[in-house]
Design a protein around this nucleic acid. Structure first.
Lengths: 110, 110
DNA sequence: AGTATTTGACGTATATTTACATCAAATTAA
DNA sequence: TTAATTTGATGTAAATATACGTCAAATACT
C-alpha cells in the first residue's frame, strides 16, 4: 500500500473493517465454529481439526485474539482457547449497525 | 501464501470469508455508505468523497462489484454505481447464519 | 535427572492487497 | 473538427497476509 491511508477514515469504519478482516479467512471462521462447539478447547486439537499446519493455525489464533474474539488460558504447557461471548455479541452489534447504515428501504437504482 | 489452502474448507465458509473480505477495508465500507446515501451515484463523485486517488477507488469498486454488492450502469462516458439491495439482504442473511453457528446461549469458558 | 510434549517466537518464501501513475478509448462540449 | 472529460486497463512499488520450518522455553512424564 506504499502509504496506508486507513487513518484518514472514520474511526468506527476502521474498527468495523478490522472486525471484518478478522473474519475474512475460512480458517478463522472454522476456528470460531470449532471453539463454539468445543468447550474443552485445547490448542493442538484446533490445528488437528484444520487442513493447516500448527504454526499457521497459531497465527490465525493470534489474529482472532488481537481483535478479542477469543481468549487463551494457559494451563501448564497447554493453552485453552475459547470464544469471548461478550465480544461475539459486540461483533454482532457492530455488524448490525453498519448494515443498518446502508439499508434504505426505498433505495432504488437509477 | 505459497500454496493457497482455501479450497480445503467448506464451500459456505469460503464464500462467507469472501464476503467478509469485501468488507475488510474502511474505503469499501465508506463507498457502500455513500452509495446508500446517494441515489445519483456518479463514479467520479465517489472518489471525490474519499481521501484516495481515483484509480485506487476504482479498484475498490471492482472488488465490491466482484462479490455483487454493487452494480455499475454505463451512461455514455460516465458510469453510475449503485448498491444491489438484494445482495445486501443476502449478505445480511449470510452473516446472520454464520453468527448463529457460533452463538451458543450456554457457552462458557473453562 | 532425562526425555517427550506443547507452545509461541522468529525467520522465510510466495501471494495478495493497497495505492498510484500513465495510457488509450470513448464520449461529450466548444 | 478539436479539445476536454471520464473511465477502465495495465503496470509498478511497497506493505501485508498466508503457510510453514525451526528453535528455545516451559511443563509433564518416566
Amino acid at each position: 500500500m506504499v502509504q496506508s491511508k486507513t487513518e484518514l477514515f472514520d474511526k468506527k469504519l476502521v474498527k468495523d473493517a478490522e472486525l471484518f478482516k478478522a473474519l475474512a479467512h475460512p480458517a478463522r471462521l472454522r476456528i470460531l465454529q470449532f471453539l463454539a462447539e468445543t468447550p474443552a478447547c485445547i490448542t493442538g486439537d484446533i490445528s488437528d481439526e484444520l487442513p493447516l499446519g500448527r504454526t499457521t493455525v497459531n497465527q490465525h489464533l493470534k489474529e482472532l485474539k488481537k481483535v478479542g474474539l477469543i481468549q487463551g488460558h494457559i494451563l501448564g504447557v497447554k493453552t485453552n482457547y475459547c470464544l469471548d461471548p461478550a465480544k461475539v455479541k459486540e461483533l454482532e452489534k457492530s455488524i448490525a449497525s453498519f448494515l443498518e447504515s446502508i439499508n434504505f428501504e426505498n433505495y432504488k437504482c437509477i
